[in-house]
């Protein structure tokens, strides 16, 4: 079922760079990578013409060094393993309540992972994305253009940084252990160096 949907979308936008990503795990949940400039169009097409009326899950992924090898079979040209040009990604899991099919996975990627790269918001299409896009902004720092209320969701307003990014450094307030070991010992050493 979802394969036909993928085909019809790719046929609808022949001149756009829409890619079909084949999942290599036994789950068999394939996804569609859509360029940001037509994401809203594709979303309306999916909702109004193909009946995907239920946006279940919105989440972000931080590909700090590019996509890891082996996750998608046909994603070979995306792999920039070990390179510096990582990017952020938003994943939408769509279902159809009328036709009872899904999930259809829609992915949109930013070009860079600098502070606050912008992607189009799909909240006007699916209201249920509202809080989840705010959460993605809070934790990953993707700015959603066109979102009605783009603020942090979980952390406080004065908070700096985006904690779910892979390179986020947590505040140095770890539990004081009587027998520190491993990672904690490392952190204590750097801390001792700082205060001296």
């Amino acid at each position: 079922m979802t394969d036909q949907v993928f085909k019809s979308i790719i046929e609808k936008y022949p001149d756009k760079d829409i890619r079909f990503l084949e999942n290599s795990s036994p789950s068999g949940q394939h996804s569609l990578l859509v360029p940001p400039e037509i994401a809203v169009d594709v979303a309306y097409f999916l909702r109004d013409c193909l009946g995907f009326d239920y946006c279940s899950n919105v989440t972000g992924v931080d590909w700090i060094n590019g996509v890891k090898k082996g996750i998608w079979k046909s994603d070979s040209n995306e792999e920039i393993d070990g390179g510096k040009s990582g990017f952020l990604e938003v994943v939408y899991h769509l279902y159809s309540v009328q036709k009872k099919v899904g999930p259809l996975i829609l992915r949109v990627r930013t070009k860079t992972r600098e502070d606050r790269p912008e992607l189009p918001s799909l909240t006007p299409v699916w209201k249920s994305a509202e809080f989840q896009e705010r959460e993605v902004f809070d934790l990953f720092g993707i700015w959603f253009g066109g979102h009605p209320d783009m603020r942090r969701l979980l952390m406080w307003e004065e908070f700096e940084g985006h904690p779910m990014r892979k390179d986020y450094i947590p505040p140095d307030d770890y539990e004081y252990e009587p027998t520190p070991h491993g990672q904690i010992l490392e952190r204590i050493k750097t801390k001792a160096g700082k205060t001296e």
């Binding site: 406080w156 307003e157 908070f159 700096e160 505040p171 307030d173």
Partner: peptide, 9 residues
């Protein structure tokens, strides 16, 4: 509320 942590910790 501080930039990363509570002030004071």
């Amino acid at each position: 509320y501080g930039a990363n942590d509570l002030d004071p910790p």
